[in-house]
Amino acid sequence: MVQNNPNFVLMVEDLTVSFDGFKAVNDLSFYVEPNECRVIIGPNGAGKTTVLDLICGRTKATGGSVNFKGQELLNMREDQIVHAGVGRKFQTPSVYEDLTVFENLELSYPKGHNVFGALFFRRDDTVKDRIQEIAEMIFLEELLQEKAAFLSHGQKQWLEIGMLLIQDPELLMLDEPVAGMSVAERKKTAELLNRIIADRSVIVIEHDMGFVADIATRVTVLHQGKVLSEGSMERVQNDPKVIEVYLGH
């Protein structure tokens, strides 16, 4: 593999984290190209979510490097990483239940992010139009004034995706975006994701193999904090190591 290709958006190299001696992620390396949709799969406890946590700064790494467009992310704060262009969706939908859908999207709008910016933030037409645009994309344009607490599980997932979209990140990381969704919602989400991933790089964690086949450019299989296999969906599916630890059962 070419290690110093400047065309990579994200270069994860020798990434390691240990919790009191237990290495949840161990010497992990992988590379993401522009406009690529990378799906990470693997059995429970393989370290998938931890990898995303490490990239977005939620968990501090013990060693290694995460390079995003030439910037080292490991010594940056979460909000700085976001401003660098990395967006993250959590496994369980995390939206602001006490605020309306509109306000949820507004808070993610990339303006007025410091204390005084927020204090003197104006809700002008550019902001409103952009929120409207995103709301239509995530099928929530009718519910803008509704409190997020009243949304269904699937709608909350969409809202959170919308909150990321409004930031317009260059790298989007989604942790099980269709978990807990009905079949109909799943289809809509796949359609939504396919539209989103067109002009940015995406890392997705997903268990639903049908869904993975739908969206993946390349697949990385993690096992015990290491890369077990990597490549196209087809190649990975036929890899005997992968079949043994993951797909076999």
Partner: peptide, 16 residues
């Protein structure tokens, strides 16, 4: 209000 309920989400929306 958002921070009180979902501190992590606020952080990952780019706020310090």
């Amino acid at each position: 209000i958002a921070m009180r309920d979902q501190e992590d989400r606020v952080r990952f929306s780019g706020y310090d």
